[in-house]
């Protein structure tokens, strides 16, 4: 195994594993779709990073945070359906990205470029991915109770604003990291597909989180290894691998 492949695998595994674990919570709130527009909003940041030669995740992060604030404010102010906001945010993000992004360099922003990840980005993926898993794990029952019934959570003394902030910050970190792995177009899949596959085969909450993480890790490893063999981009192969895992779980679905 080459040094570069090792870095790519380590980054991919940490990003995809933590994204999938977070995805189990996003599925409960039907929020997996939000990762889509956030990924798209990350595109201008990714474009700037490519043009000025710094980390794509670092460029994406402030734009994702901005995206979360924009979606949150738009929802409060306009009461528009999330689907409408998704369309607005998606189009705006992509339009801004293509104003800055040289078209010959677009691929990395659109479908990710984990095959060229450096040591510092790998370390950042390890630290931030682990941080998100630890924080979400400690807050899981409270965030899930908020997702199931916010009023009950409040009467149980849960600080809903604090946990929503923790939840949204975790989403921002994961989307920014995800842009590096699978690009701005497919971050929602990184969050949603392994979680959906895990739901098909899990009977308990514990199994759900662990299986989602494993499916995320397996998708990343499979996609990155296939990419080195076929010389095709890793991002789409990672998503394709998770799609195949999802399809494999459908016949044994325990949902109903």
């Amino acid at each position: 195994m080459t040094y570069q492949l090792a870095l790519s695998l380590i980054s991919g595994i940490f990003i995809a594993g933590s994204a999938a674990y977070l995805g189990t919570l996003m599925l409960s709130r039907k929020m997996a779709v939000i990762a889509g527009p956030l990924g798209h909003l990350a595109l201008p940041g990714a474009a700037l990073a490519i043009v000025y030669g710094f980390s794509i995740s670092l460029g994406a992060f402030p734009f994702v945070v901005l995206g979360i604030i924009v979606i949150w404010l738009l929802e409060i102010r306009t009461k528009l359906a999330m689907e409408a906001l998704t369309a607005i945010v998606f189009a705006t993000g992509v339009a801004i990205a293509f104003l800055f992004l040289p078209i010959d360099k677009a691929e990395a922003a659109l479908v990710g470029d984990i095959s060229k990840v450096g040591i510092y980005d790998t370390l950042a993926s390890m630290v931030l991915g682990t941080l998100v898993v630890v924080i979400i794990n400690r807050s899981y029952s409270k965030i899930l109770l908020i997702n199931i019934h916010e009023d009950v959570a409040k009467t149980e003394g849960i600080d809903v604003k604090l946990y929503n902030l923790i939840y949204l910050s975790s989403i921002a970190i994961i989307v920014a990291l995800g842009v590096d792995l699978v690009g701005g177009l497919m971050t929602a899949a990184l969050v949603a597909i392994p979680a959906a596959a895990a739901r098909n085969v899990s009977r308990t909450l514990g199994q759900f989180g662990a299986t989602a993480g494993l499916f995320g890790i397996a998708s990343a490893a499979l996609g990155i290894v296939l990419s080195t063999i076929t010389a095709l981009p890793a991002g789409p192969l990672v998503i394709l691998a998770s799609g195949i895992i999802f399809l494999a779980t459908v016949p044994v679905s325990r949902a109903w």
Binding site: L27, K30, L144, I148, D151, T204, L205, R254
Partner: peptide
């Protein structure tokens, strides 16, 4: 509350033990 029913928890693979676990 009103509206806390099986539909609210159907999206998740939750056992009764998990539901009690939500209150630790």
């Amino acid at each position: 509350p009103q509206g806390l029913n099986q539909v609210s928890v159907r999206d998740m693979p939750l056992t009764v033990k998990d539901i009690f676990g939500l209150k630790e």
